[in-house]
């Protein structure tokens, strides 16, 4: 039943007693309440739940995105490969954990090429041109965009379709070879064809990357994830192998959600 290989591998992320609150003054009200979980390496972990359940808040705690907003308070511990992320600088952490957002957001002032290596530029990492060319080509090939854009690398990305733009954003996150990629409902703004392309891509990418995917689309979680979390009202209700959860949920709330009773 249990795949021995994945069990032996250490978890890439360990979340311990995580709390996220959006109100400094009312710490009793949590968007994420006391969540503990280990995220498996080189697997796709989906976080599901009705809107407002705290799934995005959980995801954004993993790369300390909440620090941008002073009113958000995060408590608890998160370890990335056994290193406490609060001990890392947020610069370093975010280089190790890539993020893809709900709607495609390539930088409009940069060309496709510049977008892929934007992380290097933003971090002030200088490289020779042929090295840069290599990274761009490899990252774009990884997201199966190379053939579509190789003749327009130095044009701005605004003529790309939504799906292409989102793959460009994934390439931008991949260019750093992060340990983990966080995706926040990456296909919610896309049509079914573009969605299935992204899903195929994620399955391919999990060979080398650990992927955490927030989705409100149960079918998507069932199609591509290895592990699933179900969150409700900030709580982690159930976490386990996707197959097990979908066939035999252990909590009544999970069962109701999967039957379409809410959300």
């Amino acid at each position: 039943m249990v795949n021995p290989v994945t069990e032996i591998k250490k978890p890439v992320l360990r979340i311990q007693n995580l709390h996220v609150s959006y109100d400094k003054n009312d710490k009793g009200k949590y968007a994420v309440a006391n969540v503990s979980a280990d995220i498996k390496k080189d697997q796709i972990t989906a976080i599901m739940g009705p809107s407002g359940c705290g799934k995005s808040s959980l995801l954004r705690a993993l790369n300390r995105m909440h620090e941008l907003y002073p009113n958000i308070v995060t408590q608890g511990k998160i370890f990335l490969n056994d290193v406490d992320i609060s001990k890392l600088s947020n610069i370093e952490l975010r280089r190790k954990i890539g993020m893809v957002f709900q709607s495609p957001n390539p930088f409009p002032s940069m060309s496709i090429y510049e977008n892929v290596v934007a992380g290097y530029k933003l971090n002030g990492i200088k490289q020779k041109k042929n090295q840069r060319d290599e990274i761009v080509e490899k990252s774009l090939k990884d997201v199966a965009l190379w053939n579509e854009v190789k003749d327009a690398l130095h044009k701005r990305g605004n003529f790309l379709s939504g799906g292409q733009q989102q793959r460009l954003c994934i390439a931008r996150a991949l260019a750093f070879q992060p340990d983990v990629i966080l995706l926040d409902e990456p296909t919610s703004a896309l049509d079914p064809v573009a969605t299935s392309k992204i899903e195929d891509l994620l399955i391919k990418l999990k060979k080398n990357y650990s992927i955490v995917l927030v989705t409100h689309n149960m079918a998507q979680a069932a199609r591509i994830s290895d592990y699933s979390m179900f969150m409700y009202l900030g709580e982690l209700v159930e976490y386990g192998k996707t197959k097990d959860m979908f066939t035999n949920p252990s909590d009544k709330r999970t069962e109701e959600y999967l039957m379409g009773k809410f959300g």
């Binding site: 941008l68 957002f101 930088f107 992380g119």
Partner: peptide, 21 residues
């Protein structure tokens, strides 16, 4: 905001986000 967040998620500092995005 989503543009600025994209840059932050790549490890940029606020100054780098301001000048580059």
């Amino acid at each position: 905001n989503h543009l600025k967040e994209a840059a932050y998620s790549l490890g940029a500092t606020r100054m780098e986000v301001i000048w580059n995005v």
